[in-house]
Design a protein around this nucleic acid. Structure first.
Lengths: 193, 193
DNA sequence: ACTCTCCCTTAATCTACATTAACAATTCCC
DNA sequence: GGGAATTGTTAATGTAGATTAAGGGAGAGT
């Protein structure tokens, strides 16, 4: 099993000893998820945190009319979780599924707790991940408060340059908070034909 | 100086020894902020994290037309910060000011770093705070994606029951993402007169 | 090679919420 | 205590983006 991608991610924040690496990787589960297959369904409790090494996941919520609204994409190198459900064991509001065939590692919450109690370095790693996520959500919220649809689209292009090419337009529309019809119109009327 | 409110907050997550308490409180700065006075101005670097003991702060961003959009209120017992600016030393996008005369403690980022390096317990505390904040922002985002203005208002009432009584309506409007005119109309047409 | 499903586009109509403006009621500060 | 600033309300008009509907094209599985 090739743990390099996830170990590289951890190494961005903390430097592990060989012992810590072995202990950490012993908790990792490998999983392959097919296109449209769920990693988490809303209503279930989220018991794991996932790290994508290949492919792409998305988390999304469903409104009362059945419309899907994407909260996050997770291409390789990204973590994904319904944090409230993980912390409180409430049923998740988010669905997490695969946009294309995806490979990932996951860690179960009890294993993560044990890891952090035994080695404070993982406490530190978890803190930094959560702080970064918090900063990202703060700014996403600010963007949604003060930018219009076109500005949010430009933002998306600089945030996920790789995804903009591979993702169906309707997924981008769902992330930036407009209908696919409106995004299509927006992109085709800006350019002078 | 009465450190009880902030020590109680820490005690929700970790149990400090007397030594740790003393070390922690030695880093705390007390500050009183008058109504409308800034704790942080957008453009400046956010170098501290604040904990409110009395009164109420708000963080907000300003759009290109000068409109203010509230990200968060911080009544007593809440922390408030522009996390990206704190982490990266980029200029803050958020303004933080006082809605009414407010008392708070703050810790400077370098002191917090030292504290966390010396006592892993504060690493743990920081992780838990950040994880909770992340969970809250995830769900705020979901709410904004799938709820309409009236539903967001109801949500606000259950989230901040104390604030709904004391806060000017225009601040509530700014938080839930509508104009004060629209909120006024919404509240006065639901009730049959 | 051929369905079938998904995806993109165009266009007409619709609606939740914004904007502007004007006025009354509060609250604050000197 | 009084003038100024802030707040809440109503109503007319404006608009970004939603909804509905319909047609065409491209990929994927058999």
């Amino acid at each position: 099993m090739d743990y390099a991608p996830i170990l590289n991610n951890v190494a961005k924040y903390v430097t592990l000893t060989e012992e810590e690496e072995i202990y950490f990787t012993s908790f990792l589960h490998y999983k392959k998820v097919k296109r449209k297959q769920y990693l988490l369904e809303a209503g279930d409790v989220n018991t794991k945190i996932a790290f994508v090494t290949n492919g792409c996941l998305r988390s999304y919520a469903v409104d009362k009319n059945g419309g899907e609204h994407v909260l996050q994409f997770a291409p390789p190198g990204w973590w994904i979780v319904d944090m409230r459900s993980l912390l409180t064991h409430e049923p998740a509001r988010l669905n997490i599924d695969a946009i294309e065939e995806t490979e990932l590692f996951y860690i179960l919450k009890p294993d993560l707790d044990a890891l952090q109690l035994k080695y404070p370095k993982f406490e530190r790693f978890g803190r930094m991940l959560a702080e970064n996520a918090m900063a990202t959500y703060q700014h996403r919220q600010i963007d949604n408060m003060i930018l219009n649809a076109m500005e949010r689209y430009s933002n998306f292009c600089t945030l996920y340059p790789s995804l903009i090419l591979s993702l169906p337009q309707k997924q981008v529309a769902s992330y930036i908070g407009v209908t696919p019809e409106f995004l299509s119109k927006m992109l085709n009327t800006v350019v002078i034909k």
